[in-house]
Amino acid sequence: MNALLDGLAALGRGAFAACRFAGALTLFALAGVSHLLRPPFHLRAFLRAFVEFAYFSLPVVALTAVFTGMVLALQSSTGLSRFSAESAMPNLVVLSITRELGPVLAGLMVAGRVGAAMAAEIGTMRVTDQIDALTTLSTNPMKYLVAPRLLAGLLALPLLVLVADILGVLGGFIIATVSLGFNRAIYLENTFNYMTTQDVVSGLTKAAVFGFVIALLGCYHGYRSRGGAQGVGAATTSAVVGASILILAFDYVLTELFFAR
């Protein structure tokens, strides 16, 4: 009986903590977004965050996309050949990449790279009083540090995913034509004939949400970090883990919204 009650109490505490986290995160996001709508705007801070987010993530995202496209082609060719349906392969590759694997894998890779870096940078600024210093210099840290990063995440990840879509399809194309003996023209024709605008748009929308989530978690955990280098390390871990889980959860929700009817 007692064990049962303890278990229930632990469950309740967990649920309570989760709700509190969700509430705090939402308030933080609203505060950040509200600063995007009111001047002054910190254009330089935005550009720096955007370049950091988009440009420096390109190599990681590009490699991930190419290899994913290649593996996808290999796997689906062996799978589809059992049903003599190899001709569906170009279509399968492009759908998987644009709808699902492009945004999710790019999101997870960038969460590890950029989300961690944001949490570490803002966390270090917190524990070394730089955030307090901003306030004493008439600068709102939410406006200067958080808002530009949220906007950068929102805009940069769709761009990255667009690149990932192209490179992912290219990866599949290379494997199909070089080692599986597909005809190049027919492969490309099959790719583009069956691809719809909605496939790409849904993927890019996911990317915008994921990019925002990555920046949000990075900023949130950095902003609230305490207690020196150890606190910054913990903030970094929380940012990456939190963003990764939220990406997968939002992926499900958005897929429901887009495709289930």
Partner: peptide
Amino acid sequence: RAEIGMLFQNGALFDSLPVWENVAFG
């Protein structure tokens, strides 16, 4: 706030900005 200047215990210089931008930040 604009009427108050503060020298923090460990400096708290913005390490992502060059020295002159730190000084001219306010």
